[in-house]
């Protein structure tokens, strides 16, 4: 459980930092390079992966939503 939560948090941090670097390139490159777009593509890819892995983790019993007691 704890490890799964840490995994989720680390991936989320990765998403936030790719978004942050996209902002940096947005200002720095003034739309003349692909770095903004590349960083944003990374961030959306990671997000989708995280969303999918939440499902997988739940199916494997690695994570429980808080406050919801498992059925049965």
């Amino acid at each position: 459980m704890v490890l799964t939560k840490i995994f989720v948090l680390v991936v989320f941090l990765g998403i936030v930092s790719s978004l942050g670097s996209a902002m940096f390139y947005l200002v720095r490159d003034e739309g003349n390079s692909d770095r903004t777009l590349k960083a944003l593509t990374w961030r959306i890819g990671l997000s989708v992966a995280l969303f999918a892995s939440l499902f997988v983790a739940y199916a494997l019993g690695l994570i429980q939503p808080h406050g919801i007691t498992p059925a049965g």
């Binding site: 989320f12 998403i15 936030v16 978004l19 947005l26 944003l40 961030r43 959306i44 997000s47 969303f51």
Partner: peptide, 11 residues
């Protein structure tokens, strides 16, 4: 970029 920000906040 704003949309991506809103998206990440949701995540």
């Amino acid at each position: 970029w704003y949309w991506h920000f809103v998206d990440v906040v949701w995540l």
